[in-house]
Design a protein around this nucleic acid. Sequence first.
DNA 1: CGTGCTATTGATTTCACTCAAGATTGGTGG
DNA 2: CCACCAATCTTGAGTGAAATCAATAGCACG
Lengths: 245, 245
Amino acid sequence: MTKDATIAVAADAPSSCRACNSRLSGLCATLSIEELVGLSRYSARRRLEPGEEIIGQGEMILTCGNILNGVIKLSKMTADGRQQIVGLQFAPHFLGRLFAEQSGLTAEAAVESYVCSFPRTAVHKVLGDNPDFERKLHEQSLAELDQAQEWMLTLGRKSALEKVASFLVLVATEIDQRESFSTSFDLPLTRLDIADFLGLTIETVSRQLTKLRKEKIITLSGTRHVNISAPKQLMRLADNGDYLK
Amino acid sequence: MTKDATIAVAADAPSSCRACNSRLSGLCATLSIEELVGLSRYSARRRLEPGEEIIGQGEMILTCGNILNGVIKLSKMTADGRQQIVGLQFAPHFLGRLFAEQSGLTAEAAVESYVCSFPRTAVHKVLGDNPDFERKLHEQSLAELDQAQEWMLTLGRKSALEKVASFLVLVATEIDQRESFSTSFDLPLTRLDIADFLGLTIETVSRQLTKLRKEKIITLSGTRHVNISAPKQLMRLADNGDYLK
DNA sequence: CGTGCTATTGATTTCACTCAAGATTGGTGG
DNA sequence: CCACCAATCTTGAGTGAAATCAATAGCACG
């Protein structure tokens, strides 16, 4: 293939992919133009309402895809209905287990979200041909494992106040791809979701937020918007709360 | 290569690999004889005392390897010294992050253990050449993620009694490669380790074990040996404890 | 057999949960 | 535009499960 041909083909990148963050920094960055075109033939952009389910615990996995925008929560339930959120996924995360038949957890939109989804089989094909793709996917899985293990420390060993601080730091870090730490943002979760993520009750979450507000570490406007006025203190509290009781 | 040559080479499998479970069902099952011979040149069998550290949180990752025997605990600590065990690894699990420079956690032997370790660089070489190897490693990472997420549910939403039951079920399931559920085994962890795994204190762990003993679900001999007399009840309790208060 | 470590048991405290009102909020229709 | 409504969130009072503090008991080692 000549250099000119390459440029000509590059111009043929699917229009929907050109402005996409997954193409820039996500999984799609590992794809050739040909693979991208091939995949995009089967792709579907989908809008998800808050609370709308992508897949339920125990269901067959038929699709996978990139988060374009929004926040997806992954959760598990006990037999008697207690719920735990085991992961929050932000753009441009790739969703979907390519090697499993059944989903071990429920994935649903926490807020209005957009995903670019593919049939599992189409992605499977790329996986065999493109080692970079599998590598990137593998690295993403390992990053997810790191986050899960970090969160185990939070769930098992931190106080309620530290848990809420840890949650705010997590959201501040992940909510906006363009910033490494946002000091002003809307919470992507309701109080109930936050409680299910932290292993607490909504009342306890509310009390800890009030405490952070009274300590002038954050300000709240409405029920969703957070301003972090003392990021350093919040981060210290998230790691271990011994400087403030 | 002729068939005879293949057989001749097969006979040349390193003697230390012939009886090894990793070769049978672990990561080494994906290696060719040549790769196996190549790697085994750099491999070292190492004995670990209980409590002996393989790598500490924040240290450089220089080696990786298979667990031949024993149990390795992975843990994290907060700035002020609270500890959480974030994973237990049994044979023939492969240990070591091949894509990270620094370890995010501490890995140490819970009981006397044997590992077959390699320089990271040697394994990295195989990784580039052998897609099956990366696939297997990736699948192992995903299994680890599943376990971590399952444990998040345990940490966040289960009572102390349910947590201890969940731990016993986990050990019964993993301790012996030859059995899918052992009803008689030695605990690989001290009470302190169990507490650090479950996000509890040693006193609470002890009280819950006593409760299980009094309910005739388990019997204890000495401080380490457990007999599960009512596996069904224990499993029910591990999922959710509403049948026994 | 001590001796030291690990585990159990008991008494008390504390933090987060439960139960119970209210207060905001944001959405809807008069 | 404003009043009302349902849902979500906050606050308060009391309870309870697990933590803490404090002995005691069991076990494994020399």
